[in-house]
Design a protein around this nucleic acid. Sequence first.
DNA 1: AGATGAACATTGTGTTCATTA
DNA 2: TAATGAACACAATGTTCATCT
Lengths: 122, 122
Amino acid sequence: MGRSTFVIKQRAFLKLYMIHEAEKGRLYGLQILENLQDYFKDLGYRPTKSEVYKSLHELLKDGYLTREPIIKEGTEMQTLYIYRIGDKEKVKAYKDTIKADLDRSIALLKRALKDNYSQKRG
Amino acid sequence: MGRSTFVIKQRAFLKLYMIHEAEKGRLYGLQILENLQDYFKDLGYRPTKSEVYKSLHELLKDGYLTREPIIKEGTEMQTLYIYRIGDKEKVKAYKDTIKADLDRSIALLKRALKDNYSQKRG
DNA sequence: AGATGAACATTGTGTTCATTA
DNA sequence: TAATGAACACAATGTTCATCT
C-alpha cells in the first residue's frame, strides 16, 4: 500500500458509500451526492461533486462497479447512469481492506482522545 | 473554520501531542518525533520530520507554546529547543476545539462502519 | 436547465536540500 | 554529525469550466 498513512482517505470513505448505493442500484451520480451531503450534514461534512465522480470513475475503471445509461421519461436525454456491482468477490475483498483502514483510523483517533483528554491519576 | 471538512487533519492531531510534550517540557523536536514514530508504529502511522516541525512552529507563532535553547553537556552547540506551554488559557481553548473535531471525526468513521459492515436485519 | 466529466487551483503532506554549531 | 529549518515536489481535494442532450 501507500507510504505511511495517517487516517483513511476521503476517497476510500466515499467509495464505500458508492458501493453501498450500487448494491441498491437505484440512484445516479448527482442523486448519490445530494443524498450524502444531506446525510452527513449533522457532522459538518459535505462531500463535493468531483470527489463523488472520481470515486465512481475509479471504481468503474477497477472493475468493482458497472453502469448503464438510463432513459429519463419525458425527455430524450440519457446522460444519466445507474451503477451496479461488478465483480462481487472483488468488491467483498476491497471492502475488507477498507474496513481494516477504518478500524485503524478510529483506533488512532481514539488513542489521541485517551492520551490528551482523559483525567490523569496518580 | 475551514470549509467542508472530512476528518481531522494530521497537523491538528500532531499539535495535540506537541502540546502534550510541552506540558512535560522535557524533550526537543527530534526526540518528540522519534517517540511518536515509535508510539504509533503498531497503527501503521509514521509521522514525518516536517510535519512535526511545522506543528511546533505554528504553535509557537500562534503563542500556544514557547521554547528555549538548551546547552547540551559536552558540546558547545545549542541548536536544540525545549518547548513549554505559553498561554495556558489559550491552549485549553485550543484543545477544546481539537477535541470537538476528533469527536466529530470518530463519529463520521463509526457511521461508515455501521452503515457498511453491520448485518442488515428485516 | 440537469447531468456528467475534465481542467484548473489550492492545500496538505512527504522528500530533499541548506544551515548552524 | 545532530538538530533545526526551508525549499521543493507530489498527492489529495475543492472550484471552475466544458460538453451533451
